[in-house]
Nucleic acid binder design. Structure first.
Lengths: 169, 169
DNA sequence: TATTGTTATACTCTATAACTATA
DNA sequence: TATAGTTATAGAGTATAACAATA
């Protein structure tokens, strides 16, 4: 909401304010803002997603698509409603997402024989292969970069705190 | 992307899978997913924004609006472009946001006498009063809750790590 | 009657191009 | 010509209601 991809001024910086001689542009003060969790959380989230997209750009996977493939792999035999709701995706919105993955032959819908209303989700062979490659790219580029910035111990502490917030806040 | 507000199943849980007797619904395994920073970051961010909205619901302020008021207060005499770009908001998108705040008499646009193209942003008296009340609500409800969950020391460490990611990732 | 997948739809957020008025 | 604010517009992401097939 507050924060978008497009930060950072373009090349020829603004130079409107110039009362005395030729004062520098004077960057704004964030003040309190930089201590507010929501603000810094949103900014960090945008950076992390941006970096993720770059790291797996060759496979054309968004974070959301990656999470669907991971969850289907880990939970074979589940239907659309179960996968979607676990990820916090509403069922109507999951349809187009699956259409996309299925049209790329990464996963498939299989009508359940027990309950013919349900579509069981499975990864195709190509889907498994792409997911394997994606995991390698994420580990070697995305997570490696994160470890460079924070250090492994801090990275684990960060994830633990964020999980706590997600589950208990 | 991956995660939305609508998690948690509705009241009458699903009970479709029941091969033997009356097996429990078997929750899905998140697996690797819970160790991926982007996933847990997004979930935490949604929770924090949700909580923020509830805490300041009486003032009808979103996190984005709160951040604009804070930044205008801290940086008097700045124009729309400067405030927007510091927050990562694109100038076109900032127009409707300001229209909203101005229509509620929380801030005002003042044509600059130096450069008649610019609109200097200021808080109105009502805007200052609302911001003061918002800060109190955020501190006494939102941040207090966060301290309950994490503890003060952890909260500061978390914000430091997220800032590092936002700035260096 | 209730549930699964689906369609239609709407609202927010984000993004780009182009206009106007000023410089 | 370049910049500030604006308009128009398009695309994601998210949300709700309702329908057909099935239970």
């Amino acid at each position: 909401m507050t924060v978008s991809k497009a930060a950072g001024k373009s090349a020829g910086a603004t130079r409107a304010r110039r009362d005395a001689a030729d004062a520098p542009p004077e960057a704004l003060q964030l003040g309190e803002l930089s201590e507010h969790l929501g603000f810094v959380l949103k900014r960090a989230q945008l950076r992390v997603f941006e970096n993720f997209l770059r790291c797996v750009a060759s496979l054309q996977l968004t974070p959301a698509q990656f999470s669907v493939l991971l969850l289907v792999e880990k939970n074979p035999g589940r239907n659309q409603t179960e996968i979607a709701s676990t990820l916090g995706i509403l069922r109507p919105n999951f349809v187009a997402m699956l259409d996309n993955l299925e049209s790329r032959d990464l996963c498939a819908r299989i009508r359940s024989t027990n309950d013919r209303r349900s579509h069981i989700l499975v990864l195709t062979d190509k889907g498994k292969a792409v997911l394997t490659r994606a995991k390698k790219l994420v580990a070697s580029k995305h997570e490696a970069r994160l470890n460079d910035v924070l250090g492994t111990a801090n990275r684990e502490a960060l994830i633990a705190m964020l999980s706590k917030i997600a589950n208990e806040f």
